[in-house]
Design a protein around this nucleic acid. Structure first.
Lengths: 370, 370
DNA sequence: GCAGTTCCGGACATCGATATCCATAATACG
DNA sequence: CGTATTATGGATATCGATGTCCGGAACTGC
């Protein structure tokens, strides 16, 4: 076992000729200097060897092995901080999300992490809780961390002041060499990963109307949020094709989460019996609405149909007849990271990756939309 | 607006006497040297001022303001990498989870991020996907990143070889000065944040048996996983109080997620009709089981009751009569971060924080358990 | 007004790693 | 065998920030 441990480089051996401090309760991390000393070479040489600079043919093959052995025996691992200091930028990505607990955000993060791991990058995650000031504050924190790229998975709004404040920060970060990628729709001019929320919502509305539904309420999410705006606009456009209109007072602008759904249903109250469909612009709101309906003795889809948007997979298991729009959130994350750090391929050069949505009607995937 | 932008320090102004490169397409980040030059002081002095070393009474008050103004005007932010190089450790936390998409993990992360933000710490998240080798690999990556603390929210097992490999890495990290905190049960001797899975499961079993249920199947999750082991043991102990036994062949060891639930139900097949309760040791498995049951025409809790563990809040909205055990995952995250970085309070000094679980029976919280 | 104390702020060294420069050794080739 | 070429590896400088040391100014008290 001792040998095994040594081989995996985890058990530092004191450099020869030095007496080790009592125990190894708190030894400092191994530095390149330690490796160089043990291998009896200069520090820059050790660096070159470990970075492949020394090709190691002929005689110096022995030197190469000496250094590599020393590094292995000591359990050396290069200090990311020192590298970052020297290079001027870290091998890290800064990621901003609204809320990690939100299922959609979690899936996006998972996609980013998977792609980041392949590239040996570390991801620093921060949550804004949809607070505009905090978002700016966190972006300034990113400035000091010298990230290679910044990915924003937070919701962009139509609030010009707020967006300008964010843009101001992003400009600085970009000037300092960080690539900026936004996930979701926005009016900004940065690289983007999106779906066509408008058309997907329209397709869903189309299906619902074609099935004979006529009286709709819409749970729209915050009024300023661009994603919400696009989805509502698309949904209304889809209904319009069938000559259906939704009165202003049946469009609710509350939170994008379960509470938003609860609230809207409670406000609807007795008007619920006049509705065929409550169309929520997120699965979270849909779940909240379903729970609130049930408290009033209404079952879905028996008494009233509730639809969502995003396609949280778990919901399909517990609500078999739930209609929603599938958004490839995991792919969002992967694409965002690729755009952020990969050499620009023809696709990435366009600085806009549009993914496809799928339409799920009463639990059945109908097809893939643009 | 111009003035505003300057005041928030986001618009770097070129140092006097230097001509700016065309545009500011890619200017380098502002360094302390830039600040010192503009303020006409030495670099160490600038550092002292910005770190509060200069009290600034009397005449040097002017100097203090000069430096602070310079920093503000240039939009200076200290390089975390350089600080980390100097200090030997970064103001960062390394976090390992099995899977970010898992609801429980996401909630834990949220708790950690909230507590980390209060302390100005950055959190680097990595996912193991429950792969033992990858876990070790990611821990070695953490070594180079000089994190102040490492938090493991991955599942610990009874596999000695695997645990030894992890322990070996953790020892090195700890020797290098990182605090180690584990979330969940384990046989390791590090700081821990836990609940009493055994007793909570026993309490749930107790309630179920008291309600007249007699014939149980258990979805146990991977056999090696300690959390799973403890929950099953507790559940069986709770049933034993009522003289109920569960035959070995009705305890299923598959994945801890929805697929694990699907699989077990499919294997049960015709034996389902002989059961009162399928007790899943995680909400994810429970959801999978519910979906699989429904495909066979069985409804829960009408035909057969399914219970879970963890208490994913969203489930309470869609499955009103679901029984489960509430685990305070957000608090797990907060406690873990506190243990990892705060000065040892009497509570933290014990290096073990035990949170309380709650018992939720058919959607109603019965009480708080030890 | 002088001695003694305090504080200040500049010069220098340092953290860990890498780019640059250069002298030297090894090789190739005529 | 001698010269031209190449590869090599050490010394030195550098990244950005901070700790140490010390001379000198300001201030205190008598």
């Amino acid at each position: 076992m001792d040998i095994d441990v040594r081989n995996c480089g985890a058990e530092p051996v004191p450099p020869e000729g030095e007496t080790q401090v009592v125990g190894n309760s708190t030894s400092k991390p191994v530095t390149l200097a330690d490796v160089a000393r043990l291998a009896d070479v200069s520090v820059p040489t050790a660096s070159r060897v470990l970075n492949g600079g020394v090709r190691g043919k002929g005689g110096n093959r022995e030197l190469r092995e000496r250094v590599e052995d020393a590094a292995r025996v000591l359990g050396y691992s290069v200090s990311a901080a020192a590298q970052a200091t020297k290079e001027g930028r870290a091998r890290t990505i800064g990621l901003l999300v609204s809320d990690v607990e939100d299922f959609g955000a979690a899936t996006i993060i998972a996609g980013i992490l998977d792609a980041a791991e392949d590239r040996g990058l570390s991801v620093a995650v921060r949550a804004t809780h949809d607070d505009a000031e905090r978002e700016v504050e966190l972006l300034t924190q990113f400035r000091g961390e010298r990230h290679r790229a910044i990915i924003l998975a937070t919701s962009r709004t139509t609030n010009l002041e707020r967006e300008l404040a964010v843009k101001t920060q992003l400009e600085v970060l970009q000037r300092h060499g960080a690539n900026i990628v936004l996930i979701g729709d926005s009016d900004h001019d940065y690289s983007r990963v999106t779906v066509n929320n408008h058309d997907a919502a329209a397709a869903l509305a189309d299906e619902l109307a074609a099935a004979g539904n006529r009286r709709f309420a819409i749970l729209a999410g915050p009024e300023e949020q661009i994603t919400s705006r696009d989805r509502v606009a698309g949904f209304l456009a889809g209904l319009a094709r069938h000559g259906i209109e939704v009165p202003e007072e049946l469009i609710f602008h509350h939170g994008f989460d379960r509470d938003g759904g609860h609230l809207a249903v409670d406000i609807l109250g007795d008007r619920l019996r006049d509705l065929d469909v409550i169309a929520a612009m997120s699965d979270g709101m849909a779940v909240g609405a379903i729970a609130a309906l049930r408290r009033r003795g209404l079952e879905t889809p028996r008494d009233i149909e509730v639809t969502g948007f995003d396609h949280v997979p778990m919901l399909g298991d517990v609500l078999p007849e739930f209609s929603t729009v599938g958004v490839p959130l995991h792919e969002f994350g992967e694409s965002a990271l690729k755009m952020a750090v990969d050499e620009p391929t023809p696709e990435i050069a366009k600085r806009r990756v549009a993914h496809k949505t799928s339409l799920i009607v009463r639990g059945v995937m109908i097809g893939v939309a643009a």
